[in-house]
């Protein structure tokens, strides 16, 4: 019985398209995995050619991936891949760069200061907020524990 305003949300579920869980996960897996594989190739390159250590090679690798992602966003390719990759393009750091670049690009028509610069962190701001808050809280707790014991 669909004609029941109180329970419509529940009853209408039978009429909703079924989510292709497996396909979505497979796409997220191979696209996300490939981005990390590309990252590993870049990292190995920095370690062998510029003699970065395993600990420090992460920085130029992430920066390079961010550059690639920003350019792909500019050329309008990143969102096309993301259409089927789902979390495969959101979770890697390239997704972070895409959210920054796309927000800035979207508001370009409002000018460099009020458009691009003001909106740069429109979507990515939450990553920094949650990262800093959780790291600060955990850092304080850990330091306290280390000092006491």
């Amino acid at each position: 019985m669909l004609n029941d305003p109180k329970n419509y949300k529940e009853n209408v579920k039978a009429y909703q398209p079924k989510l292709p869980y497996v396909t979505n996960c497979l796409n997220a897996f191979w696209v996300g995995g490939s981005i990390c594989l590309i990252g590993q190739v870049i990292q190995t390159f920095y370690m062998n050619i510029f003699h970065f250590s395993k600990q420090t090679a992460g920085n130029p690798t992430v920066a390079t991936l961010i550059l690639i992602s920003a350019l792909m966003t500019g050329f309008g390719i990143y969102d096309k891949i993301a259409k089927f990759a789902g979390a495969g393009t959101i979770v890697p750091v390239t997704g972070f760069a895409n959210s920054i670049t796309s927000s800035a690009l979207e508001h370009k028509s409002e000018g460099i200061v009020l458009g691009i610069a003001t909106n740069l962190f429109q979507l990515a701001g939450e990553v920094i907020v949650f990262g800093v808050v959780s790291a600060a809280v955990l850092g304080i707790v850990r330091l306290f524990i280390e000092q006491v014991f």
Partner: peptide, 17 residues
């Protein structure tokens, strides 16, 4: 790198779906 990176993305996909 491929397997672990892909697996982390699958966890993200499950959170979404």
């Amino acid at each position: 790198a491929f397997l672990v990176g892909g697996a982390i993305c699958v966890v993200g996909q499950l959170l979404i779906d």
